[in-house]
Amino acid sequence: MVENARSLNLVASAVLFLGMLYILGPLYLTLTTSTQSYEFMLRNGLVWYPGDQFFTNVIRIFSETRIPQQMANSLVVAVGDALVTCVLSFISAYALVFFPVRWGSVVFASILATIMLPLDIRVITTYQVASNVLSPINALLDIIGLNGLIAGVFGAPVVLEWSVLNTHFGLIAPLVAHGTGTFLFRQFFLVLPKDLVKAARMDGAGPIRFLFDILLPLSRPSFAALFVLTFLGGWTQYLWPLVASSTPNMQTAVVGLARLAPDMEGVMPDFPLIMAGAVVVSIIPLVMIAVLQRYLVRGLVLSEK
């Protein structure tokens, strides 16, 4: 704190308190609602005190909904997303920092540009590609005129088709290419002593040994931080799983939660059930943060130096 005036302290505390209220109020309402029965809610609306139906609601989540299976989907997507992002980011940052890459800064800038183009912006084009991964090749064949030639000779143009929609791979792949991780690792690599590479070379370690023996162990905090961040991102991802999965058994938990509310007009959604589902779905990311939070902080702090 720059100044230590009492009044300033009071104001700061008040602002913090308001912020907490803003975040925790709805959360609290989620918790209390999840403990009421549907009938109770229909009679009394949302209330601020807890009831006794929490476990009944949780059991209904597991027995009557597809949330458990969808949580498994979420787990596959989140872990897959986190792992692949970590590996890709680590390797690309390694190449950018430790090797004299021609146009290295241009490459890095274009990687960074992906931060400014999140999936939400390019969802339609991404959907197009996911619905036929080979469509760019088709387009290329059209453009260079090869397809016209083929159509002339064989009677029909080549149209390749491979859809990854409604698969785990299709859910994960568009999420993994993201510049944040590369940036995080790059910054971390840049603050490492330059002589470390030279020392490893003098000791006879080639690029691969250096990667596994020196760089990987040193990067553990950055790995953990990036893993947690991407895991959370993958777990709470809504838009892409919504468009990319067409059957309930491929949907992720967050999408499944939203689907618990009926589409019909005039029907009151079963909010206690939905809220209980929200609580259940939040448990895994909460545990994740609790276990890895010290790495999270260390990894992010290291990268800022």
Binding site: A199, G204, R209, L218
Partner: peptide, 25 residues
């Protein structure tokens, strides 16, 4: 072999591992 200005020891390895690394490689 070379001794560097800022030592360039491997921070995650013990003294033993640092000294032994080249032999291990």
């Amino acid at each position: 072999a070379m001794v560097f200005q800022n030592y360039a020891l491997y921070p995650h390895m013990s003294v033993f591992e640092n000294i032994a690394y080249s032999l291990k490689v």
